[in-house]
Design a protein around this nucleic acid. Structure first.
Lengths: 338, 338
DNA sequence: CTGAAAGCGCTTACAG
DNA sequence: CTGAAAGCGCTTACAG
């Protein structure tokens, strides 16, 4: 019924073995190459993935494991990875998982049953080390967004540390000296890195970080972001500016300042991390450090493909994608005021 | 190397044909059923999808075509569909596509090459009829979120009309009589339906809709939402309340009212469509009509599976998922005021 | 470089 | 209901 490799063999007068070699980019006479290409085009031949997979033990599908899709950030990363992978001939099957061991195991099991050739994993936290170590013994794996300490694994993340550093450096350049850090959860890799960068920038400017200027939360929740700002503005000498390490925390801070009628940036300057349509729509626009989501997704896909193709030269590799400051109107220039 | 159906046959003393029948839920002696189940369990047998696919011409994978994943709404829908499908033994490969013919064709081509057994499509607009009609001749297809007029196709959507009706009915119950409708794009199925419902509610209350109280946009953009509110508040007798038909439009309206220092709900009441964490974090909380995203995703998956399994009884079917009003504090009760 | 043959792990008629 | 045999469309050694 449908066109097979046999039809191409008949049509070209070559053997199926040669057609197969063409399909797999193995050396054949360039004359034959042309003939085959023309025949494939003419007959609209499409290789049968099931047959290829059955013989070669490779499924040409890769798994992407994501915490939750209820989040435009992961969804977007997934989208870019998927695009890159698709263009290279792979399909992706994506799974979301809950932050518990049972869910992780089920997800891994399902993926392995599907005989995926590799996986990109976005971990919840360090605990997900377990799930990745099970996987990476069997197939190539990339950790996205998190660097898992205990696991020896390829990772691609944003330059979180540098992004945090940039945010504070900018605030300092605008004359701020008392800067609060809405540091988010203590167990989040990204939050930790961004906070570390922020503190380093402070230190490099000769400012000793004060613990009352750092507010931690349990999770990335707007409600906790609100509370963080509340807390930090109630100390003896409140800051003139705050750096919020993530979207939800930043939204929370914004909500809290509007409840207190703080005028931004006059009463309080703010820099967030992660851009969103809302930060450019709102007045004043909110200055943020923006992640390059497209590169994040693509590089993860590319690195994974290299591993699948057998290139383990630089293993384990940590790829950092630069994050960049988007300057808007939420930071007051204290120097101009003087 | 890995366990195959042959191993199970050996272990149980039955033939591979019988094991295959077990795997495919065909009638076998219940005695044998038990023996096989035990053996599969014992040897950790996992059927090889490639082999099954090669023989049976079914891939047990289904395609989900999505406008963009850069959107928590689609991502979430995808997540729920994926979960449902996975539990039923299918994997999903998802593709995003651009709103142009070339991109659509490439996407369809890629999916068809993968021999998907069915597809769920979230169209951009009526134009996507083309892409769906190409697909649905070959494999079962469900349209999600949109009902495509010209294509005879299964669809599952939220009760958009009813949701719009509810929003206005609520506003009326709070004593509002002059109500603005931020109607979004004229070519969006969901926007049209929600607006239709809103207008019907007005009419049913004996209020003739006035065209100056309806503001359309080109796309779903916050900037256009801002402009819509601006426009509608500048007419001779501005409304006491507005209904925003979608998230972005609602955010835009909120931003515009904050720029004008309208106090919500005192100066202006507002009801949105589509919930978001931000609407419950903000003060006052924003009243919205909420879609049941989980059901949307699940029902689409279930309907598709029914079609794939050959049940075309109720074709074409339109499944409407109820949307429900979440009452918060953005609507002023004018009756109490009197 | 090319080709003949075997075989990947299943499902599908077909007999029994 | 069960089983023997053929075959799905490829890739993989192996000769040539």
């Amino acid at each position: 019924m449908s066109i097979t490799i046999k039809d191409i063999a008949m049509d070209t007068g070559l053997s199926v073995a040669t057609i197969s070699k063409y399909l797999n980019n193995k050396p054949i006479l360039s004359k034959n190459r042309e003939v085959i290409a023309a025949s494939i085009e003419k007959l609209h031949y499409i290789p049968n993935d099931s047959a290829r997979g059955l013989r070669s033990k490779r499924s040409h599908t890769i798994g992407i494991i994501i915490p939750t899709l209820n989040n435009s950030f992961w969804g977007t990363v997934l989208g870019y990875s998927e695009e890159e992978l698709r263009l290279r001939g792979y399909s992706v099957i994506c799974c979301s998982h809950e932050p518990n061991e049972e869910s992780s195991k089920k997800t891994i099991r399902a993926l392995l049953d599907k005989k995926i050739d590799g996986a990109i994993l976005i971990p919840y936290s360090q605990e997900d080390c377990q799930i990745i170590s099970v996987l990476k013994d069997k197939i190539p794996c990339i950790s996205l967004d998190h660097v898992l300490e205990s696991a020896n694994i390829d990772a691609v993340t944003s330059a979180n540390y540098e992004g945090g550093y940039e945010a504070i450096k900018y605030l300092l350049s605008q004359g701020h000296r008392r800067i609060g850090i809405l540091a988010g959860p203590k167990n989040s890799y990204t939050a930790i890195e961004r906070t570390r960068g922020a503190l380093a920038a402070l230190r490099d400017a000769g400012i000793a970080p004060e613990s009352e200027l750092i507010a931690y939360t349990e999770e990335f929740l707007t409600a906790e972001g609100q509370h963080s700002l509340e807390q930090i503005m109630n100390i003896n000498r409140p800051p003139t500016a705050v750096f919020a390490v993530n979207y939800d925390i930043c939204i929370g801070a914004l909500i809290n300042s509007s409840m207190h009628n703080y005028r931004i940036p006059k009463d309080l300057s703010i820099v967030g991390f992660d851009d969103d349509i809302i930060f450019s729509s709102v007045r004043p626009g909110i200055t943020v450090v923006n992640q390059n989501i497209k590169e994040l997704g693509r590089q993860a896909a590319n690195l994974l493909l290299r591993r699948i193709e057998g290139d383990w030269n630089d293993y384990p590799s940590l790829i950092k994608i630069p994050a960049s400051l988007i300057t808007r109107d939420s930071v007051c220039n204290l120097k101009e005021r003087l």
